[in-house]
Design a binder for these strands. Structure first.
Lengths: 345, 345
DNA sequence: TTGTAGGCGTTATCAT
DNA sequence: ATGATAACGCCTACAA
């Protein structure tokens, strides 16, 4: 008695398969009583429709893919779970696909799209290296999360949801300046980054300019090509910075992971955070509240962002709307890792 | 020019569909030249077989599901990525499914199994609450990772791969004892846990016994039902412990996340780690090496475990072997969060 | 070695 | 409101 099919159910109910189909798909043209009776039989024999057959028949497969670029960012963990939940609510399926830092995400996307007959995709992180033209090759609706391109064409072939990286970054660096810091270093993405790295660097520069602080290229530490937003990377960059003998009173890391790595490096150099060097992060990872010292950071509203991403995607899929670009406010959370610039200097 | 099908390819090549099918599925009975020519045409028109159609035809769908129980354990993040890679190498698909702490994982598993015609499943974490009989309902091969049942029936209907939780836990607590600690608290899973929580608690008790230290129930802190292996949970449990006024010189948390939460609580109580209270964790998360103080822990060989899990699963699927139970050695990594019991006491 | 045809479980289009 | 029936794209006997 392997698997029970729609035919079996039909037989059991003494009706035609199409009636059963109508019942399980909430079609209008069906007698409520018939439907109820069918659903009961389905329940009793716990029949579950075969997904492959459905997808084969349907044009779309009711599955949406989540592409995650760059390993080891716990920031995405929560995001994925929220997205998964939203997708499940809509009775869609989700497949997640991790793409290595060097891999082209669009290439991976294209393959997935065809193979699985996706009806939509969500990109998490990444989206450096790729151009809008590349992205346009993906035919299904796409929403970019946390990886907006700087220049948002109104009619871009995709949606996006994120915080305003320039603004939030500016907010943080401005805060650091207000504390009296002038020698503010930044730990940022690669030099060629066209995504969050670039934007957050922009915010940094903007804030410095506002405070009439000259931008010192030696205080800008870029990741190497092979690196990612990991603690290890933050550790390495900070160590280099420390060894460079540049005077620094604070450092802004564009992710909490980087910030924590930086703290470790500072610590190992026999210095204290924030007494000797203040450290600020970005993202709002849980660990920031438990680290010693607790981490000043920009908290991104992860849950809201994820939900909005799903919402927009479904809207676009159902053609209820065209592509949208939505920004959420981040929140500057001040904790122990930053303090006023020591006046005893 | 929507999607190109196997028929189109056949037409393009001037051959029958079965020949094309044979080509893409590496069947033996085909002329190498024909095959090469077909593959070329496929490449040029980048034809990609429709997965749903394949799965419908095949009995199994070549997809394996990963069930992750309990949110927010970064420990599983890496695991999933490694598993994903292994699965992809075999040209299978992976779907991950998070199940809430209260949800029954077997129920979720059953639904998935039918709906997606899985050919195998990997359970990550969890597996408390569920009995072997429940698990037996899942017809496809299952491998339990990091969640072995205490009593392993030789012919259990599943495989498992993990560290020997009793032994590793024993190793850690034994080490703590060797350092001179006698008042050793443990932060563990719920009281009803039948999985890693139970096992690690066993190891703890065993080590204490070896050192003739009486077991003090007040030093055993169980999670509440609603809690999970999170930093927050560790923080809460530790705080309760501190408030209980029990004298403690060290605490063993059965996960690094819990340990970090505990450190925070200790810190906020104005005490120092390890001077006042030594802290040890379990898992070997990256953060352990960057936290202040760095965390003494049992490092689990995540990558090996994940690879082995995939390997075993594929073996069982292909009927090359029956279910296996494999254990890996953990590694006791001593760092700053533990030290010798202060003799000045 | 290769081609033809039937069927996998659904959904959708027709009639009824 | 309901029931046949034809696709959906692929794999696989079976036949050639």
């Amino acid at each position: 008695m392997g698997t029970i099919t729609i035919k079996d159910v039909a037989k059991l109910c003494g009706v035609g398969v199409s009636t059963v189909s109508r019942a399980i798909n909430d079609h209008p043209d069906i007698n409520p009583e018939t439907k109820q009776m069918i659903m009961k039989v389905i329940e009793e024999n716990n029949y579950i429709p075969n997904n492959s057959a459905r997808n084969l028949k349907r044009s779309d497969s009711k599955t949406i893919a989540v592409l995650v670029k760059g390993v080891d960012n716990p920031f995405f963990g929560k995001m994925i779970r929220v997205i998964e939940e939203e997708i499940r609510k809509k009775k869609y399926s989700m497949v997640v696909h991790h793409v290595e830092a060097q891999e082209g995400e669009v290439a991976a996307a294209l393959e997935l799209e065809r193979q699985k007959k996706l009806c939509g995709m969500i990109f998490l992180g990444g989206f450096y290296s790729e151009t809008s033209e590349d992205l346009a090759k993906v035919k299904v609706p796409v929403v970019l999360v946390t990886s907006a391109k700087p220049q948002l064409e109104a009619n871009a072939g995709y949606s996006s949801v994120s915080v305003d990286d320039v603004k939030e970054s500016y907010r943080m660096v401005d805060y650091l300046c207000e504390l009296g810091h002038e020698r503010i270093a930044i730990l940022t993405a690669t030099m060629y980054d066209e995504s969050v790295g670039k934007l957050r660097l922009q915010g940094y520069k903007k804030a410095l300019q506002k405070h009439n602080i000259e931008i010192n290229e030696n205080l800008i530490k870029y990741m190497k090509d092979s690196e990612d937003y990991s603690m290890k990377c933050g550790y390495i960059l900070m160590k280099e910075l420390l060894e460079s003998k540049e005077e620094i009173s604070s450092v802004f890391a564009i992710s909490d992971s980087l910030a924590i790595g930086a703290c470790r490096a500072i610590h190992e150099a026999g210095l204290g955070v924030p007494e000797d060097i203040a450290v600020a992060g970005f993202d709002g990872l849980d660990i920031g509240a438990y680290y010693t010292p607790t981490l000043t950071t920009i908290v991104q509203p992860v849950e809201e962002i994820a939900k909005e991403a799903a919402k927009i995607l479904f809207h676009v899929i159902k053609k209820k709307t065209i592509h949208t670009h939505k920004f959420f406010e981040g929140e500057l959370v001040v904790r122990e890792s930053t303090n006023e610039k020591d006046s005893a200097h």
